[in-house]
Every structure is written in C-alpha cells, then in structure tokens.
Nucleic acid binder design. Structure first.
Length: 492
RNA sequence: CGGAGUUUAGUUCAGCCCGGUUAGAAUGCCUGCUUUGGGAGCAGGAGGUCGCAGGUUCGAAUCCUGCAACUCCGACCA
C-alpha cells in the first residue's frame, strides 16, 4: 500500500478517481485491454449490491436463470434496430481451435481448419439469445408473465475505457420479462425503474432523477427507455440504471407468439432492465473525498473496524476487549473487522481504513480500559468522540443509520445546489459549461435540436422526468413552443 | 478512430538531450532490535533480460529504424 496522498478532487477529478479506485483496492487494469480485475475489497461491495438487488428482484416475483455467453450472429441480426446499435462493439468468435505453430516453437496459432460455420458473438446484452429461447417457452397466456433475471458478464468493445465506468467486459444483471399485455409490460418496466430508484437512494445513498429517454437516446430495439440519472461530484451525470419497454419488437423478431384468452395468436410484450458494475463508479464518485472512499453502511464490506492500541504488555488485555466488542456488535447485526495485526501501527491503520471508506472506526487503548470508554470515529464527517463502553451497541447502531442518512443528504444537498432552471441559451451555456450543473430547460422535442445543443455544449438530454410538471415555454435553442422542461447535463 | 504521452526494481519515478565503472532514489518487501492514541525508528538484506525486434558503434537504458502495449485528452458509447 502506497503512503502517498491521493490527488485532490479539485485539482484533477479524473486522476483522483483513477487513483482512488486503485489505492482503495477496488480494482486495477488487467493485461487485457479495457478489462479490469475487480479486487476482493471491490468485489465485496459488488456482492453487497448483488445480494440487495437480488432480494428486491425476488420480492417482485422474479427468478434467476442463465443463458449462453455466445450469441449466433444470425440471432443478433433479427431485430434490426438492436443489430445496428450493437454491431460496432461486438467481439466475434470465428474459430474454435488452436494448434502449435510449426514455424515457431512453443507458439500457438489459430487452426484455419477450425473455422465456425457461423460466427458467435460474445453477448453485448442478451435480448437475442433469450428471446430466441423464449419462443420455446411461451405458448399460452398461462405461460405469462415470464419474469426472469440473469447475473452475467457482457462484452462491449469500447474505444476508451475507465475502471468501473466503462470497461470492455463488465458484470451486470439483466432482467428479461415477457407479458400478455402492453399495459402489464409497461407496468413492469416502471416497477423495475422504481426498484432501481429505491436501491440507489436507500443503499447507495445517491439521489436520482428518474425519467424517460428522448427517442434518440433509446436502447437499440426499445419502444421506450427509462433511466435513473445521478449527479457525480464534478456535476456530471451518470446513468445508474435503465429499464426498457420493448413492445413486441423482440417477440416479432423471434416469433414468440402465444394464444390469448380469446384463442387468438398474439406476440408477447417484453421488457428488459439492468444495472452494472458501473454502479461502483457511481458509488465512488458520489461520496468519496480527498482522503479516500466514503462507503454507506448499507454497502460497506464491513461497517466497523476496531483498532487496538497498546503499549508493550497490555496488548492481550486490549485485544481481548476488542474481541468482546466485536462479538457484541456482531450480535446486533453489525459487520465488524478487528485489525489486531501487530505489524502495523495504529496511525497506519487509521489512514488505511479511511482510504477504504469504512463507515465507523473504533479505537481502544489502555486509556479507554481504565476509563471504560472507546473512541468512535465517523468516516463521513471525520469526527471523533469518546463514548462509554456500555453504550457501544446502541450508539454504533444509531450511528449506522445516521451515517447512511447523512451520506444521502449530503449528496442530495449537493445536487440541489447544482441543479438550475434556465430559460435562455446564454444561461444554459453558463450553467453547463462554466458551472457543470444539471439544467432543466425547455426543448422543442426534436432530435436535431438536441444534437445541435450537444455539439455546441456537450450537454445531452439525460431524461424527461417522471411526473414532470407541464409548463408552457420556449425551446432554449430554437424558441419553438415546449410543454415541459427536460433535464440536460454533461454525462459520463 | 484522431491527438498527445508513457514503457527502467513489486509500485512511483530519476538517469537518455551530450553513448563509457557494478543502472540509481523513494516507497514497498524480507530479517533482527525497538516502537505502537494519526501513515514510527535504527541496522542489515533480497529485488532490474532498462517494452520487443533490428541497426549504428570498440562500447547502447542512452543514438537511428520498425513494431507492440498501456495511459491521458477528444470522437464514439442507444
């Protein structure tokens, strides 16, 4: 572990992020271009996200299944918009065998005789393979709804990658549901958007705007795309989750028909929805500071770290007390790590756990043994207090809730302070370019206008918020009439 | 895909312009002693085909050519 300080957010936000990811032991670049190694500490956080979301999916009636990594090219072609959208970023398997190179000892080469009849695409998403499978599963309205989720890895050959935010291979979950009616499918789409919103706000501690994407930002093959958008500390937006209403597009492409109650054949209605390891990026960028990661208690691999402090002989006594504390906290459902390594000094450990974002640190030394106290340090506010040992469980338990709330509130206040309404293009540019804010502004509803604004300011329409207040106004660029404001921001 | 940069110890880098002992530092690592309330100290030790392939030269980390990988900025990313 390096002992150097992190770069400051204010000096170079991007460098701060990259360094933090590595130094907090979350992930590192691998030897494979664009692909990361998620390290144990980072993976533990991802596992927490998985567990929480998985529970939420099951509560809403979904079950997990698993579909192949490879998608025959012909499947991907079937839904036209889908095919076009993903074609440029697919990894393609063309051969299934290697052989030793006769000209270079010890080297391998592709065996030209082992060319696949049809190329296999490494899934960039699984609509194609899944809807091809659903054809065999769906005959009657009685087979519906089909509510399935998959935890998987996908590959999108991105030009430029960043740890967690955009990697060539990433982990995610993708829900793929089939329904008998449009209404039910739309309800499912919105339900999952709400699940993501709850997850983001309650567990990640990140307030989000939820809304609908304008037509030109839709998922390839979708009728409607919904999303949640979060603000990072540099004012940029990060799409933290998406939920798509796919209509009958995939059912038609893959011929998934069912007999309805009126004994008529009908195409099934589809949804898909997903969140990825990108959420790790959101978590890091939303809360962390120049000292390192700040983790919400609901997602921290361990919520409390105990650091014993001793001089020579009293080590065993201090460590024993720490073990007792660990036991007491575990008994009330708090996850605890006791760092009783004798090879590092307390100061070193303090710095290390700050870097790693552990929500609460307890320090216990001879002084505390004598006084019956223990020092409690909060990561989010970096404040320390000494409490009576008797209060340990109740104090720490309350503190967990307090920290979770405070982290959300801080992110919320930051977003409020950096979200504005504007009515002129001048104000718009000022807010986007100079202040890097979220901006609610009127838009004439055309793709051309959105493109032009993007070219000139780099801001994109993040979403048209749900329950958006209707309000007469004029498009900031063209002056044409508009009925509502949409959310603009620069985005990751 | 365009632009820039980087490649030397586990890591971060110096050395290169101006070729010449055994290639250095910090940090990390190992051993011992000592220490422990905010990244301890001392002593000793291990660790490098200088990205790869050619070339120039008596001699190349250093100069030349080619290649590759990575990073950053931009474009792209539904």
């Amino acid at each position: 572990m390096s002992t150097e300080k992190l770069p400051k957010r204010s000096a170079d936000y991007s460098a701060w992020y990259n360094e933090l990811v590595k130094r907090a032991d979350l992930a590192e670049n691998s030897e494979v271009r664009g692909c990361m190694v998620i390290k144990p500490y980072g993976y533990s956080i991802w596992e927490k996200m998985q567990q929480t979301l998985d529970h939420m999916f099951k509560e809403t009636g979904h079950t997990n299944a698993y579909f192949p990594l490879f998608v025959p090219k012909s499947f991907l072609e079937k839904e036209e918009g889908h095919a076009e959208g993903f074609a440029k970023e697919c990894a393609v398997v063309t051969h299934y065998r290697l052989k030793t190179d006769p000209d270079r000892k010890g080297k391998l080469m592709v065996d030209k005789d082992a060319k696949l009849e049809e190329e296999l695409i490494v899934r960039p998403t699984s609509e194609a393979i899944i809807w091809n499978t659903y054809r065999g599963w769906i005959q009657s309205y009685r087979d519906l709804p089909l509510l399935i989720n998959q935890w998987a890895n996908v590959v999108r050959w991105e030009m430029r990658t960043r740890l967690f935010l955009r990697t060539a291979e990433f982990l995610w979950q993708e829900g793929h549901t089939a329904h008998a009616t449009e209404q039910e499918a739309v309800e499912e789409t919105l339900q999952m958007l709400d699940v993501y919103t709850t997850f983001a706000e309650t567990f990640l501690g990140i307030p989000v705007f939820k809304g609908r994407k304008p037509a030109h930002e839709r998922f390839a093959g979708a009728v409607d795309t919904y999303c949640i958008e979060a603000m990072m500390q540099d004012g940029k937006a990060l799409q933290a989750g998406t939920s798509h209403y796919l209509g009958q597009n995939f059912a038609k492409a893959f011929d998934v028909k069912f007999t309805n109650k009126e004994n008529k054949l009908e195409y099934a209605y589809a949804t898909s929805w997903g969140v990825s390891t990108r959420l790790m990026g959101a978590l890091i960028m939303a809360h962390s500071d120049d000292e390192g990661l700040v983790l919400p208690p609901n997602l921290a691999p361990f919520q409390v770290v105990i650091v014993p402090i001793y001089k020579g002989d009293d080590r065993s006594e201090v460590v024993e007390k720490c073990k007792e504390f660990r036991k007491r906290l575990q008994a009330v459902g708090i996850s605890v790590k006791l760092d009783d390594r004798d090879t590092h000094t307390p100061g070193f450990k303090f710095a290390e756990y700050e870097l790693k974002g552990v929500p609460v640190r307890l320090a216990l030394g001879g002084r505390d043994l004598k006084n019956g106290t223990v020092e409690v340090a909060r990561r989010d506010t970096k404040t320390k207090t000494s409490i009576s040992q008797d209060l340990l469980e109740s104090y720490v338990k309350d503190l967990m809730e307090e920290i979770q709330k405070n982290i959300f509130q801080k992110a919320y206040d930051f977003r409020q302070a950096n979200t504005v309404k504007v009515d002129t293009y001048e104000e718009f540019k000022e807010a986007i370019e100079n202040k890097s804010q979220f901006v609610f502004a009127h838009w004439d509803g055309t793709t051309e206008t959105a493109e032009k604004i993007k070219d000139e300011t780099k801001a994109t329409i993040r979403c048209i918020p749900m329950n958006n207040p209707q309000e007469e106004g004029k498009c900031i660029l063209t002056g044409k009439p508009s009925k509502e404001r949409v959310l603009f921001a620069k985005a990751y």
